[in-house]
Design a protein around this nucleic acid. Structure first.
Lengths: 218, 218, 218, 218
DNA sequence: CATGAATGAGGCTTCATTCAT
DNA sequence: AATGAATGAAGCCTCATTCAT
């Protein structure tokens, strides 16, 4: 059971599967279910099967739980994206990898993505410099992937990398949001889901690269 | 009847008529500033310059205020999008119109869009059938615009209209989100903003139609 | 439609079936249904089919409504009891008349009795001298009936008239309470009810006069 | 377990144990003083000398406090009456015991009886099946006492046990009500009170058994 | 007289946080 | 480390009463 969004090497310095991690995992589940504001500290404690006073041994307050989730989980995710960016392959392959990474994360750990995507930005915490910077970092990483493609002549140089980022990441985010809020539906079975998300990743990349216009028209 | 995102009132500093609308407008401002959960009913009353209890004369509870905002404002927005879809013009022009509509709405009434985009989905209200349906409707309208383009030979027929919708709307949503949460920045002055958003709309449409790949490469 | 508990002569100086009486009648119904504290002024207005602001034209406040009901209805009731006391007949007949009077009032105007019996005493208003005195008056009237019986040699002189009053009136009150709160049940049809209450009145009087002990035992 | 009307604690100024009982005892006092609706939760907390919020640690809401009082106190009272009914002795002795039990309970813990007799039935709670059943149970127990007397030839068999119950219990209830609402007055000193209530119990039983009629008259 | 919009104090309830054990 | 009782500030909501028309 990897603790990050991706299968990172298990180099966590964290103590032996202690209560602290139980709390974080429980918090993710509860936040995903009821939202940050709707979640009571006692809910988290109940989900983690610990006394709720103990939460305050490990975290200063409820906010810090969310912040910690963000910091410890998001960084792992960022590193994975960066690794893909640094790695070899065409832009198409890199983009498919990133899209698959995110969508698969959602498939396997929907609560985590729900919290990262839907909850964290809601809180004013998102306005805090540290987290703003973390989000900005994702954009930068992604933009550098696009610029790499431009440098290698794979992408049009008249495309604004910033707009391109919004387009691509926004597409993925909205797709997940649709699934989260029930506007869209994914297959029930595991194999079907895997295929569904892989296909979605390819579609997004395809449209992103080739556009939607009929050749020679637009 | 309902003030919509597009048919903006001609700049009255205080809406003429009923307190009810005063409350709704005030709620939008306060929700945008503090979020739904962070907003106190007393804040809304203060902002609307009415007595506390009057809020409950018009609305059953705080939730109903948000729901009403959604219902009365969203429907106006939907109609505008539908009008564009039904209207003449190439897909490119329609898409630019829609993108401009949304981005301009944000430019002129950022609070409204903030609440519609960021607040309403947070609450569990979003899971209610009525609202799910309303959101789904936007997707349907947008998909029909894309299919119209496919029928007229302007868009590739091997493009999945649903994925295309997610891509386009997601791009706009993320762009707005970026601005809302401060990851990106728009110009300060009005003329600059107008140009900035128009340019953004064109960029999004351009990428959406032509893709990002260098011709003959991808 | 008699306005008092008994069929008093229609000598009310009150204006022609005006709104004021509509409010009082409505209040009785609503108080009986929801209790004084549970009843909202708007409920009374709705029941009376008038605007609720009008209530404050006729009554200073909610309390005054209850007080008025008490004063205008209770006094009529008291006079009826006094009339029976002053009238001719044996004690047995007088007691049967009183019991029948009360039980019949409940049969025909259950809401009125509910309010008089269950609601008025609950409110702290009952502690007010004016009303305490009014209730004490009933006891006095009843005690004088008993003393009249003792004087005429119909009742034992070693019986404490005060305890006797408590016994008799308490019996009736508890019987009504039982019916009100649903512990006991009366027949549905009108004829059945009339017979049921008449029989109850006779039973109460009979036990009250002859006791429950087997002759020559106790 | 539950403190009952009869098994009174040996005069501890403050119940030893849990805050939960402190709250219940305080609630009884406050309800007796101000009525259920007039009592604020903060009054209860103040009377119990605990923090406001703790009330909600032990009870879901204000209603549940009243319900709990009823359930935990009434059952103890019922058991005492049942014990008297099952025990030996003539009907007269049993009736005197029951009357003394109730009147003494009122003498020693007037608040408890006030709440049980005056408050609980006011709330709609009294209409709840569970509590209706509990009250009905008292009637059944009492009726079985009367029937026992009839079986042993101590009471007239032509007496309706149900009417007899209403008469006897109603007498006691009204007597207490009179004292509660100040229509009647008991002596101030303890010894005087004890004698007063004992005499009242005997009077009630005497009238109940022998009736009020002059021998050979009625 | 009549209406019902407007007011705002008051009370219940929630729940993050602290503290004694 | 662990527990959960205890605290109390904060906020939603109700509803008696007033007011403008």
């Amino acid at each position: 059971m990897a603790r990050t969004l991706t299968a990172l090497p298990p180099d966590e310095p964290r103590p032996r599967g202690g209560k602290r991690d139980r709390i974080l995992d429980a918090a993710i589940v509860v936040f995903a279910r009821k939202g940050f504001h709707g979640a009571r500290v006692s809910d988290i404690a109940t989900e983690a099967e610990i006394a709720y006073g103990l939460v305050y041994h490990y975290f200063k307050n409820k906010d810090e739980i969310l912040t910690t989730i963000f910091e410890e989980r998001w960084s792992g995710f960022l590193e994975s994206v960066e690794a893909i960016g640094r790695g070899p392959g065409t832009v198409r392959n890199q983009l498919v990898s990133i899209a698959t990474l995110i969508l698969n994360a959602f498939r396997l750990r929907p609560e985590w993505v729900k919290v990262l995507v839907l909850e964290i930005q809601r809180t004013s915490r998102f306005a805090e410099p540290a987290q703003q910077k973390a989000v900005r970092r994702l954009f930068e990483v992604f933009e550098s992937v696009l610029r790499g493609g431009q440098d290698r002549g794979e992408l049009r140089t008249d495309m604004d990398a910033r707009v391109g980022s919004a387009l691509f990441l926004g597409a993925i985010e909205l797709m997940i949001t649709s699934l989260v809020i029930g506007v869209a539906e994914a297959p029930e079975d595991d194999a079907g889901q895997r295929a569904y998300y892989l296909e979605a990743a390819h579609q997004i990349v395809d449209i992103f690269l080739r556009g939607t216009a009929e050749e020679g028209r637009a």
